[in-house]
Structure formats: C-alpha cells, structure tokens
Design a protein around this nucleic acid. Structure first.
Length: 427
RNA sequence: GUGGGCGUAGCUCAGUUGGUUAGAGCGCCGGGUUGUGGUCCCGGAGGUCGCCGGUUCAAAUCCGGUCGUCCACCCCA
C-alpha cells in the first residue's frame, strides 16, 4: 500500500461514511439504553492535567498515558478513562445535586501503547455511573444497563456473559485464610492470571514468588476457582463478616434474576479488574467463545470521589469500548450493511428546467425530505445513474412537455413505476 | 518494551528457480444511450511493487535497515 505524504498516526482510525455508520449504530444503541434507564448524558474535556490520573491510578496506567507538556509548561494527558473526570466534575457540584446521580457519557479515550487487535491508541467508550448510592441495587442496575446495551445491538446470552465478583468479599476471604494485608493486592493480580495461565504455574507463582506455604496457596486457588458461592469452604463462610457480605452479594444476583437477566450472569471470583480504585462488586463482560478480550468492565469505587477531592460519595459504573464490541458484532453478522439513502433525486431533462428543479428541491428540503440532484448539466441517463448510486427512492423528472402542463414524472426506483404528479400537489 | 508473520492499483489478490513494457476481479471515469438507473457490451485512467540502501549484467522476487500492519508475550481504557 502506498504511503501517502500524510499518513494516519498508528493506532488511530479514520471514519469514512461506511465505517462511521457502524460507530453511529453502536453509539445510538448506547444512548437509547442509557435514556431508557433514566441516565443523563454529560461530557468533559479530552485533555486533563496528568496529575488527575497519576494520583489515583498508579504506575502502570501512567506508563500508558498519552501525555505531554503543553505550551504553558503544564503536564497534560489525553484522557485514558472517564471516571476521574467524572469524579472531578462531581467533586465540584455534587453537594447541591439530588442523589443518586445517574450520568452517562460517550468519550473518546486515549492510551499510548502499541496497538493490537481490539486495542488501539484511541477508542470510544460508553461510561455509565450511579453516584451517591451505596446499596447493591445500584450495582445491579449498572450491570443491567451494560447487558442491555449489548442486547440492544442484537447480542444474546449465547454471545456474551457477565462474570461478576466482589472485590471486598475476596479480600475478606483472603484475610480469613491468613493472607497478610499487604499481600492481598499481589494475590489479586495472580488471580487475574488464572483465566489464561495454567493453574499449576499460578500455584507455583504463589509459592515461589510470593512465599506462601503450599497449603495456603492451595486454599487461595480454591477461593478463586470456586464455581459458585455455594462451593466456598463452609468454614470460611462461618465468619460473620464474610457471611453477611455473601448474603448481600446473593441479593445482588437475585435482583438481576428478577430483571430476567440471570442467564447473562455468572459468579467468577477471578474477576478483580486492573484498576486500583475498585472496592466492591466488579464485573467483566466477555464473548462466550472466549476469542476476544473483555468487551466491558466495571464495578464499585466508593473511595474515588473523596480521593479526587470531592464529597465522599459511593459510586458504581462501567466502561464499554467500541473496538472489541465492533469485532464481536462483525463476527456475529450484526453489522448493518451500509447503504446510501435519499428521498428524492431531481432530474432536469434540459437546462431550461433547472430553475424549477431547484425550486422543487428546496421546497421538499424545507419539508424535511432529503433531496439531491446533479451539480452539472448532464444527460438524463447520467442523472438517472447518479440517482441510483445515491440511493434515491423516488426520482422526479422535469421535462419541457410535463412542465408545460404543470406536472412532472415521479419514478419509483424500487418498482420502476412512473406516474405524473401535478406540481401544486407536490408542494 | 521483547519475539515472529505480512506489505504488489481505491479494495481483494495473482505474479514461475531473479529475466523485456507488473496482471485479474470488483470499484472509479467515459461511451453504447442529447427523455429513463440497476443488467449487458466497449473503452479509459490508476502502481517509483511501503520506504532507504546493498548484491547482480538484470530485483516485486535475494540480503540489511526502516516504517506500517497483524500475531504472541507484557498488560489492560
């Protein structure tokens, strides 16, 4: 492929109309679902102080920031995620707002990292958050929105699944097992590996790298690999704090069942999420075939708003990117075929009819119809071909004979049927 | 960041062990058609074979570098 003088930056996308149509298709579905659940749309600046991310995300995210020093000598970064901006925006105004706050956004996000399939330097992400409600009803509502976003696009429980966990519960379980508090984060990181690394090598890592005794490593794995809450060691759950936490987690699951979404939800304590600020329920949505990376991830982050200097408010939300989702839709044949559409194409047989043709075109446009015509004087054949290419459903043909009688020919481009229309009727 | 595959027309690709002027289909433009599209027929434009360098009488083809892209690892908005 010839390299043009101005090549696109690697990891960024152009959206010619054929591709823009898919983006619109996805974004409109997201908006419809958001509004159906009573969420309001907001946005913020794509560029933020770098500090906003450094402060709460820690090392790894910072390495991937698309950041630079601006002309005012400020360290700035293109936003890698929306949640810190949301926290900042609410920090300034949440005190005066009625709770819970239900907001959504469709920001374009950036990261500086080598691209791969499903992972570019830029993507659009649907962000939905409930702020100011600590109960798990909010978490259930959030997950329901995420699931419905995918259903709205034609995906079913055969196509995707939501794996849910409770980071707080997992921490309690690890604590009960005797994992020291400062080792919990590392243990969670190891759990994250269990999805794609053989169990044996994960156990080895727990023992060799982290210095856990064999039997503790074994019991940690049992927790993460439990196929359901019922399979957790009964002795572990006899701890009152733990059993209460499990009970509320069950309530969360029961709510999703009641909403008719049970078939989309599976408990999986290996789900921990990479970001440091999650505190409770966390979830990720995956394609059932397991061919793609996570389509969506989210969870509860009760400390973040306070951390960014706002009112201490509990919050829960998710982010869903357009790239992986687009691949899944393509794989399942759910990408609508792009076609041009036009209500009318006006054909002037000779230049003499042009003024009348323009008048008709404008009148139709004023009434809300989409109308086009040839911008050059062309033969009727060429004008007809153009009408076909542009997807006109009706072609209005103005010739000297018809005009003299105050009418024109309307040709239905699907059936090929033609009929005479009196000009005054059309207006 | 590390390792590997790939890079020929707008798109999908073909191109013999290195050998004249690099091809096809689709698309695009024009004509058949100065009052009727889609189909069909005819014609045309479009490529410094990603880029730079090397080997050779001769390079799309072999070698090196570089850029892009894809895959794996790392990790994950």
């Amino acid at each position: 492929m010839a390299t043009s003088v101005f090549a696109r930056l690697p990891g960024f996308r152009d959206f010619p109309p054929e591709d823009f149509a898919l983006r619109t298709h996805i974004c409109e579905a997201w908006r419809r679902v958001s509004r159906r659940y009573g969420f309001l749309e907001y946005d913020g600046p794509p560029l933020e102080p770098m500090e906003l991310y450094v402060q709460k995300s820690g090392g790894e995210i910072v390495d991937q920031l698309y950041s630079f020093v601006d002309k005012g000598n400020r360290e700035v970064s293109l936003r890698p995620e929306m949640t810190p901006s949301l926290a900042r925006i609410l920090g300034a105004r949440s005190r005066g707002m009625s709770k819970p706050i239900r907001w959504f956004s469709l920001p374009q996000l950036f990261r500086y990292e080598r691209q791969q399939r499903g992972r570019l330097k830029e993507h659009f992400q649907w962000n939905v958050d409930v702020v100011g409600e600590a109960g798990l009803a909010a978490d259930a509502e959030i997950l329901a929105v995420a699931i419905d976003g995918l259903r709205e696009l034609g995906l079913t429980s055969e196509d995707f699944v939501a794996r849910v966990s409770d980071r707080g519960l997992v921490q309690m379980l690890l604590g009960t097992l005797g994992v020291p508090e400062d080792a919990v984060a590392a243990a969670l990181a190891v759990a994250d590996k269990l999805g794609r690394t053989p169990e044996v090598s994960v156990r080895e890592r727990l023992v060799a790298d982290m210095g856990f005794p064999d039997d503790l490593a074994e019991r940690i794995l049992e927790v993460f690999l439990a196929p359901s809450l019922e399979d957790l060691d009964a002795q572990l759950c006899s701890n009152r704090q733990v059993s209460e936490r499990i009970e509320s987690f069950r309530e969360f699951l029961a709510r999703l069942d009641a909403m008719g979404l049970g078939e989309y939800v599976e408990v999986d304590l290996k789900i921990v999420r990479g970001l440091a600020y999650y505190t409770g329920v966390v979830f990720e949505l995956f394609d059932r075939k397991g061919e793609l990376r996570a389509i969506c991830g989210g969870g509860r982050y009760d400390k973040l708003l306070e951390l960014v200097g706002g009112e201490p408010l509990p919050a829960t939300g998710f982010g869903m990117g357009d790239v992986v989702l687009g691949e899944l839709l393509a794989d399942r044949g759910l990408v609508p075929t792009f076609r041009r559409e036009l209500d009318y194409f006006v054909v002037a047989v000779s230049p003499e009819e042009r003024p009348e043709a323009l008048r008709i075109a404008q009148t139709l446009r004023e009434s809300g119809k989409s109308v086009a015509y040839s911008l050059r004087e062309q033969s009727v054949v060429k004008q007809m071909k153009a009408a076909g290419r542009e997807g006109a459903s009706v072609v209005l043909i103005l010739g000297p004979d018809e005009l003299e009688r105050g009418c024109l020919v309307a040709r239905d481009m699907t059936s090929g049927e033609e009929r005479e229309v009196v000009l005054s009727d059309l207006m």
